[in-house]
Design a protein around this nucleic acid. Structure first.
Lengths: 150, 150
DNA sequence: CTATAGCGTACCAATTCGGTACCAATTAAG
DNA sequence: CTTAATTGGTACCGAATTGGTACGCTATAG
């Protein structure tokens, strides 16, 4: 199951790539080429990121995009939120009023708690951290049938 | 932004309702009426839950569904996984091979870590915990502009 | 003044998803 | 033994969301 939208996923890739060279100013097309993503899509993503204030855009000839802040101060949660809007696991956690069983549904407050946990997980990782390859997180398959292969 | 699919959300509602009276055996139609959800949809959800071994189904006349285990031993993560499949935030975290930039993408291992954090957040909450209304979680908006209101 | 490049909007296409219907399998009741 | 009730499975449809594109506008450098 995919929880994040493709666009948000791409957004993290783009932002991380930008974070790799914070000084460089790249055009949307050049950036798209470097990350091997469609140009128009990358342009859309960059606009969203600029709108959220995560990247700064310079218009006109010799324009381009650049990270607005230090990569250490931008979290994955911010990038995702910039593209997909508020993070929420269920309908009712975003639009409270639209659930007809609001009054007798005892699960809602718990969803809020889970939401915060997820958001915290995304907020805890900065773009800078996404770049460090040293932290090699062991990939653990859901069901390891043959532990001998390890 | 909604991260969970509606079906998974409904699944938690259905499972939680079942957990409220673990002894009772309910038909899919009766359960659907009680939670005010379409019957066919609830039937589909129950089938998925039964497939995952979370509920036991009794076929034939006077049949119905019932929770297979103690509500304390069933987590929200299990319910979600039963309906939506594996939990994963990005494409590459589910199907590793399909990403063409697998080799030079430094962010993948970090996604795995985030995935685990999210899964942990969902696994930490049992159906039993979803029922307890006492735990009133304070709703904290994403950006608190006026801290004075606190 | 012209070329370049971001800005905004609108639009199109397609994948996915929620929902429904149907038929087979199974079991209890009469 | 027959009938009714109920789950199991599959297939299908409609719709909503989303990924992607195109076009016209604005702004800046040379």
């Amino acid at each position: 199951m995919i929880i994040l939208s493709k666009l948000a996923d791409y957004g993290v890739i783009v932002a991380t790539h930008l974070a790799a060279f914070p000084e460089r100013q790249l055009t949307a097309a050049a950036l798209a080429d470097e990350v091997r993503l469609p140009r128009a899509t990358v342009a859309k993503i960059l606009k969203a990121l600029a709108h959220a204030g995560l990247v700064t855009a310079t218009r006109g000839a010799a324009g381009g995009y650049r990270l607005a802040r230090d990569p250490r101060s931008i979290s994955v949660a911010q990038v995702v939120a910039a593209i997909d809007g508020d993070i929420g696991l269920t309908q009712c956690s975003v639009h409270v009023a639209e659930c007809t069983r609001t009054d007798y549904c005892p699960t809602r407050p718990h969803w809020a708690a889970i939401n915060r946990a997820v958001e915290h997980a995304l907020a805890a990782v900065s773009l800078d951290a996404m770049l460090t390859p040293a932290v090699f997180v062991r990939h653990r398959p859901a069901a390891a049938i043959h532990p001998a292969a390890n």
